[in-house]
């Protein structure tokens, strides 16, 4: 068990953590999710048949752990929405994300880009994180996500379009605020 853990940790931990932290943007949550990834990986480590690459397998587990988390969060949010008057009390809800130190010190421009990542779909965000923040090649990204190269390219293209649009919108808003 320890040997398997060591192997996965040494080969993939850094990449997995970057992937998850930028997806969920919360240090404690990323820690919880990465634990869940290890539990799932180690639980089925013996039965892994090696028909896909180990990297694809592990990243696919990480991706599904994150998707599950967002789904649960969405269900929870929907339930809250039913009982909560957002007009009156919405602004009382605080953003209690545990922001990693490295992110807290980002300059304004980087901060806006970081915030705009949330405007992308889950798949788009996954590709942006792997391709740009983790510097994976297109082939490596395709391997990690278990996608075809063309799907990576298409998703990346759409993600950049979304980011460009959102960034320019936010820039225009800022400029008009300054003018007024």
């Amino acid at each position: 068990m320890r040997a398997a853990f060591e192997e996965i940790y040494d080969n993939y931990h850094h990449d997995l953590y970057q992937f998850l932290i930028y997806l969920v943007k919360d240090q404690y949550l990323a820690e919880d999710l990465i634990q869940e990834v290890y539990i799932k990986v180690l639980n089925s480590y013996q039965t892994f048949k090696g028909e896909s690459s180990q990297k694809t397998w592990i990243f696919s587990i990480a991706r599904h752990v994150a998707i599950d988390h967002f789904r649960k969060q969405k269900r929870k949010r929907n339930k809250i929405m039913e009982f909560f008057d957002w007009n009156e009390k919405g602004d009382l809800i605080k953003d209690d994300h545990a922001i990693p130190e490295e992110i807290a010190v980002l300059n304004d421009e980087m901060r806006i880009v970081y915030d705009c990542l949330d405007r992308c779909s889950f798949d788009q965000k996954s590709v942006i994180i792997l391709r740009y923040i983790q510097s994976f090649s297109i082939q490596e990204t395709a391997d990690a996500l278990g996608w075809s190269v063309s799907k990576v390219k298409t998703t990346q293209h759409r993600a950049m379009k979304v980011l460009k649009q959102k960034l320019n919108e936010s820039n225009r808003e800022e400029e008009s605020n300054i003018e007024s």
């Binding site: 953590y17 930028y22 240090q27 820690e31 980087m110 880009v113 510097s135 960034l167």
Partner: peptide, 16 residues
């Protein structure tokens, strides 16, 4: 430009 900004995003260290 967006690509360049993204590439400069910091690598976050796992505290565990």
């Amino acid at each position: 430009q967006i690509g360049q900004i993204l590439r400069k995003m910091p690598q976050v260290e796992d505290q565990q």
